[in-house]
């Protein structure tokens, strides 16, 4: 999702809420921060908190609860995307909310934890949270820049799922050309050796390049190398074979485009492989953290 003007209201809202939360936190710690002699309602907990674990205070619990609620809401985006026909608001709003509310969790989590890592359990939880947030931010950055880069780098895109079939078609075309060349060689119409040169090029360069699943190491995989190689090939074969060379060049060009598109596609969506499972783990661990914390709170109240 591109971050543009349309995100401004979200940015302002999140900043406002974060500032309010920070003010509440500060006021809870130091009542003097509140202007005009105002004070927080008593149900928001003792001032200053009696417990060293700030998360256990009512205000801390409020921050934690809201953050956990946002985690759950953020996870619900996956469900929303699957249930497209449910009248649950537009998916664009959901995505924006996912993005900005999860950013809001950063101050909430910090305020909930009282800027402490706590024990090993909470430290692990914060680490997991950091992974989720970092992967999410990385995804946002990729989605902001990659579509434009992809548009400019790829002259023509194909349907991603069709790439294996299109590659197979290219290979089939090349194999057909190899058969034609072999037939020309068998008929002895070698002339100045053009069919032989083409056969060698096909066997050593073109066919391996089109066959390999990952052809990054092939010389034809590099645009500049490929241009040079085809230029030399055109010079070395007779004019009647040159249309075939042009066709070969086109196939290799198409293959390069598809490889590039595949790479882009993997970058665009690959981060989800980390983001989604870690988010799921975060929800589970946070759920357990909440249950354990509340259980402890009930058994040992302030």
């Amino acid at each position: 999702m591109r971050i543009d003007r349309s995100h401004l209201p979200w940015f302002l809202t999140v900043t406002g809420v974060a500032a309010l939360a920070a003010l509440l936190y500060a006021a809870n710690q130091h009542v003097v921060f509140l202007p005009l002699g105002l004070h927080l309602p008593s149900f928001l907990g003792p001032v200053p908190p009696a417990s060293v674990t700030y998360g256990g205070t009512p205000l801390g619990l409020l921050f934690g609860g809201v953050a956990f609620g946002i985690f759950l809401f953020a996870a619900a985006l996956g469900v929303r995307k699957k249930k497209r026909l449910w009248p649950l608001g537009s998916v664009q709003t959901w995505l924006k909310a996912h993005l900005w509310l999860t950013i809001l969790t950063v101050p909430l989590v910090f305020l909930h934890s009282g800027f402490r890592l706590g024990g090993p359990h909470t430290t692990g939880l914060v680490a997991l949270y950091a992974v989720v947030m970092a992967s999410g931010v990385f995804g946002v950055v990729l989605q902001h820049f990659l579509p434009s880069l992809m548009k400019n780098s790829l002259q023509r895109e194909v349907v991603f799922e069709q790439i294996p079939f299109l590659r197979a078609e290219l290979l089939e075309e090349a194999s057909r050309l190899r058969a034609d060349v072999a037939e020309a060689l068998a008929l002895g119409v070698d002339g100045d050796g053009s069919p032989r040169i083409l056969a060698r090029f096909l066997d050593e360069e073109c066919l391996p390049y089109l066959t390999l699943k990952s052809a990054g190491s092939c010389r034809l995989g590099n645009e500049r190398n490929a241009a040079e190689m085809f230029k030399n090939l055109r010079i070395n074969v007779r004019s009647e074979w040159r249309p075939r060379v042009a066709a070969m060049e086109n196939w290799c060009q198409s293959r390069r485009m598809m490889d590039l598109q595949t790479r882009f596609q993997h970058w665009l969506h690959g981060w989800l492989l980390l983001h989604v499972p870690s988010s799921l783990a975060l929800i589970i661990v946070t759920g357990w953290h909440a249950w354990a914390g509340l259980h402890f709170l009930v058994s040992k109240p302030f």
């Binding site: 995307k81 497209r84 026909l85 989605q143 991603f160």
Partner: peptide, 18 residues
Amino acid sequence: NMDLCIRCDECTKGCVEQ
């Protein structure tokens, strides 16, 4: 808009589901 599209095919999936 190819500057915004992340090629997720949600449009096609939405069409099929609809």
